[in-house]
C-alpha cells in the first residue's frame, strides 16, 4: 500500500499524547476478554474461597440435580450436580485452577525449549540450524492428539506428564518463529553496529536479540494458551490427561459424557468454560499482535 510507505505517511508527534490519548488507549483495550481472563485467574487462585463445596465432595442424596432455574434445581447447587452429587459450579471453579496451571506451565516449558532452540538456530546458523530445524519440522508433522494419546497411555495420566506432552508438541512453533525473528534482528543495523563496537555473541544475544523477541513471544504464548487448554481437555477427556477425580475441565466434560441427554449440565458448563477461556486468550493475543504491528500503529 502506498499509504504505509514512509513518504506517504503523515508525520505525527512522537511520544506526545493526544489530549484524548489515555482515554483512547483505554477504550481500545479488549476489556471483555481481558476481564474474562482476570476472572479466570481469580477463580484459579481463590478456588478454595469461591467454591461453595470441595470439588470432590460427594453427596449421594443430591445426585443429578439440574441447574437452579430448572424444576428440581435449587440455589444451593446453582449449576446442578453430577452423578456422585458433586457440585458442578465448584468443580468448574476448581477446574480453572487445574486447567489453567497445566496450560500455563506447559506453555512456559514449550516457550523455553523453543526459544533456546530458535535463538541458537537463528544466530549461529549453518549445520546446527539445519539439524535443529529439521527436528522441529519433524515434531510439527506429528499428529498431536495421536501422539499425545500414545504418550499419555505409556506414561500414565498425571499433571507432569500432561505438561511434558504439551511442551514436547508445542516447542517447535516457538522455535520456528524465534529463529525467523532472530535472523531478522541479526541482520538489523543495530546488531551490526554492536559487532562493530566489539560486543560478544553472548552480549548481543542477551541485550539486542532476546529483548526484541519478547513481545512476539507473548503474542504466540497467549494464542497458544487456548490451544494448550483444548489439548489438555482432550487428553483428560480421553482419560490420558489429568487423572480423575481431580476436576480438570476435560475430566468434567468426560464425566457427563454418558448422560448428555438427561444431565447435559455436567458437560455443558465446563465445556463453556473451555470455550470462553480459549476465546478470551485468542482475542487478547490478537490484540497484542495488532498493537505490536508497526503497520497498524503510528510511529
Amino acid at each position: 500500500m502506498a499509504l504505509s510507505k514512509g513518504s506517504g505517511a503523515p508525520r505525527l508527534a512522537a511520544g506526545k499524547g493526544h489530549p484524548l490519548g489515555l482515554w483512547h488507549q483505554l477504550r481500545e483495550l479488549p476489556l471483555v476478554p481481558m476481564g474474562a481472563i482476570a476472572l479466570l485467574l481469580v477463580m484459579a487462585i481463590a478456588a478454595p474461597l469461591l467454591a461453595p463445596y470441595p470439588p470432590t465432595e460427594q453427596s449421594l442424596l443430591d445426585r443429578l440435580m439440574p441447574p437452579f432455574w430448572i424444576a428440581g434445581g435449587d440455589l444451593l447447587h446453582p449449576l446442578g450436580t453430577d452423578h456422585y452429587g458433586r457440585d458442578v459450579l465448584s468443580r468448574v471453579i476448581w477446574g480453572a485452577r487445574v486447567s489453567l496451571s497445566v496450560a500455563l506451565v506447559a506453555i512456559v516449558v514449550a516457550g523455553a525449549i523453543g526459544t533456546v532452540v530458535g535463538i541458537i538456530a537463528g544466530y549461529f546458523g549453518g549445520f546446527i540450524e539445519i539439524a535443529l530445524m529439521r527436528v522441529a519440522d519433524a515434531f510439527l508433522a506429528i499428529p498431536a492428539v495421536l501422539v499425545a494419546i500414545m504418550l499419555g497411555a505409556t506414561l500414565g495420566p498425571s499433571f507432569e506428564n500432561v505438561v511434558a506432552v504439551i511442551g514436547l508438541l508445542y516447542w517447535p512453533r516457538y522455535a520456528r518463529q524465534v529463529r525467523g525473528e532472530t535472523l531478522a534482528i541479526k541482520g538489523s543495523d543495530y546488531v551490526k553496529l554492536a559487532r562493530v563496537a566489539g560486543c560478544s555473541s553472548t552480549r548481543i544475544l542477551a541485550t539486542h536479540i532476546f529483548p526484541n523477541l519478547v513481545p512476539s513471544l507473548l503474542v504466540l504464548a497467549s494464542l497458544q494458551v487456548g490451544a494448550a487448554i483444548i489439548l489438555e481437555a482432550t487428553l483428560s477427556f480421553l482419560g490420558v490427561g489429568i487423572p480423575p477425580p481431580q476436576p480438570a475441565w476435560g475430566v468434567i466434560v468426560e464425566d457427563g459424557r454418558g448422560m448428555l441427554a438427561s444431565a447435559w449440565w455436567i458437560s455443558l458448563f465446563p465445556g463453556l468454560a473451555i470455550a470462553i477461556t480459549v476465546l478470551a486468550f485468542n482475542l487478547t493475543g490478537d490484540w497484542i499482535r495488532d498493537r505490536l504491528d508497526p503497520k497498524l500503529r503510528s510511529r
Partner: peptide, 16 residues
C-alpha cells in the same frame, strides 16, 4: 574495535 566505528544509512534500524 575501539578505533573503527560506523554510522549507517537508516536511522530507524540502526538503534535498538
Amino acid at each position: 574495535r575501539g578505533s573503527v566505528q560506523a554510522v549507517f544509512q537508516d536511522p530507524w534500524s540502526s538503534l535498538n
